[in-house]
């Protein structure tokens, strides 16, 4: 009886090991199963999800106009003080004073990409871009001004 148990023990053990080896052997012989992406080489064909949260950007149209009113809703919504908006007063053609942004400062190094600023924005002035290659040699380069130089607010946005 003891011997029978002993032999079944050995047999079951070895067969369970062979089962595992068959699985790994299958993958060894089937090169098609390889799933690795060769990242820097496939940059041209790399497709990211369209909602991917890479960094905050401010879209500008062809006239170098954005839709940011400088309401600081995003600044208030941000949990870690990533956004700082500096406002100025523009003089409209009618001679009235109008509030506008001077600089939309965005600190990428502090951003957790939580998307709260984008949901808070009433005029859809900022959005998430899929760019994820953020490495720079100087930390100060991570502090960005999102509004382009000379840009102004689009007509009709309050």
């Amino acid at each position: 009886m003891f011997l029978k148990d002993y032999i079944t023990d050995v047999f079951n053990g070895v067969s369970s090991l062979l089962k595992g080896m068959r699985k790994t052997g299958y993958y060894f012989t089937h090169g098609k199963e390889i799933i690795t992406e060769q990242y820097p080489d496939n940059r041209a064909t790399l497709k990211l999800a369209d909602r991917f949260k890479g960094e905050v950007v401010m879209p500008h149209d062809e006239n170098n106009e954005h839709t940011c009113t400088g309401c600081t809703a995003c600044e208030l919504a941000c949990p870690n003080g990533t956004i700082k908006i500096i406002t100025k007063f523009d003089i409209t053609p009618e001679g009235k004073k109008k509030k506008a942004i001077d600089a939309f400062i965005y600190r990428l190094e502090m951003c957790t990409l939580c998307n709260l600023c984008i949901t808070a924005c009433p005029s859809d002035a900022i959005k998430m871009s899929a760019n994820f290659e953020h490495s720079v040699f100087d930390r100060s380069k991570l502090t960005k001004v999102l509004n382009k130089p000379g840009s102004k607010i689009k007509e009709g946005i309050e």
Partner: peptide, 15 residues
């Protein structure tokens, strides 16, 4: 994580 990336925009800390 790909499904998460599609829908939530992130892979680990989705919020």
């Amino acid at each position: 994580t790909d499904i998460m990336e599609d829908t939530c925009g992130a892979r680990l800390t989705m919020n």
